[in-house]
Design a protein around this nucleic acid. Structure first.
Lengths: 178, 178
DNA sequence: GGCATATAGTTGTCACATGCAACCTAAATC
DNA sequence: GATTTAGGTTGCATGTGACAACTATATGCC
């Protein structure tokens, strides 16, 4: 697993070794974070997806349901329900869109923003513990790599084929019958 | 969001800025990978969790159900069902444990290993595309940071309090009533 | 203006993932 | 040998999310 001394290895092999190590690390991270994030749920009273929605609305301002769905890579029906939950709890508001009577303007409430900030602060504090062990350079590098990974994955996901060759975001997933 | 020139900022502030950037990037990555990984599901005929299980068995050799559960941070009942599915599809086998009649030895089959390797190869190839754009140093650094993040998250999750102050792995999550 | 079509959201329905509790069987302990 | 503990499985409930059908509005074409 660990890249050995790179002497006597082709650039090809090095690339593969690096990619393998990175993949293993990322894969692990993602798996574990799914649990970590689920914890976040119960402590405050929202789900992970709800939290992402809150984040989007906090960071980008009001938007339509459709825009939110695209941003979060969710189906519009799922988005409706996510917003339902958030609205019920008073974290977002649905306002009529002035320009289009069909559309909505989703807005985070003050209460929602406060909640989001609280959660975010805690999560960032956790990262800070780790970041403290690295120099800034290394941290910036890692952050950049992670960003690119995310963008690349998103692009792959949105645009089409991901792994194997099923349809993309169209959501081929649930078609599986165990 | 972007760390500005670090002149005139306290180390505290720098740390916070770095942590914030890292958190945002990781958070994004995790969210997107959940979708990307779900794609992986349908293309080959297993779920994400099933794939993690296959990975564990491929990488660490035969183990008991309980050990697998601990490794994947899953409940033992969930693990049972994950293994059910994999066994039904012929990717793993349950063998009697010689030493303990209650226990099982879970083993990946040749077919299972082949599948895992196929999936893994594709995923690694995807990483390779991204890795190709970085120098090895940066890549190694990022990999290391990501590993530490994962380990830290795992430790936090397993040991106790995560965010807020609900119980840990005990699975406080589902107790929420939307 | 009026009908055909497209678009924004909502609701019905279904499948899947997963935790907890109760249970069963086999070990371990006394 | 009886009680307790441990490894797994099954019953049940909940959360999540996709897809499809539907409603209401907007847009285009005549």
């Amino acid at each position: 697993m660990q890249p050995k001394s790179s002497s006597a290895r082709s650039p090809q092999a090095e690339l593969l070794a690096d990619a393998t190590a990175l993949h293993a690390a990322v894969s692990d991270l993602v798996r574990i974070y799914q649990f970590r994030d689920r914890d976040k749920i119960c402590c405050y009273d929202i789900s992970v997806t709800q939290c992402y929605a809150l984040e989007a609305l906090a960071g980008r301002g009001p938007m339509r349901s459709q825009a939110l769905a695209e941003l979060l890579l969710l189906d519009k029906s799922t988005t409706t329900r996510v917003v339902d939950a958030l609205e019920r709890k008073g974290y977002v508001e649905r306002r009529a869109d002035a320009a289009d009577a069909r559309a909505l303007s989703l807005q985070i409430t003050r209460k929602g923003r406060t909640l989001y900030e609280t959660i975010n602060r805690e999560l960032i504090a956790q990262q800070a513990e780790i970041v403290a062990g690295f120099d800034r350079e290394a941290c910036a590098m890692a952050t950049e790599v992670i960003r690119r990974l995310a963008r690349a994955a998103e692009a792959r996901f949105v645009s089409g084929i991901s792994v194997g060759d099923c349809a993309p975001g169209t959501g081929c997933s649930p078609r599986r019958r165990d």
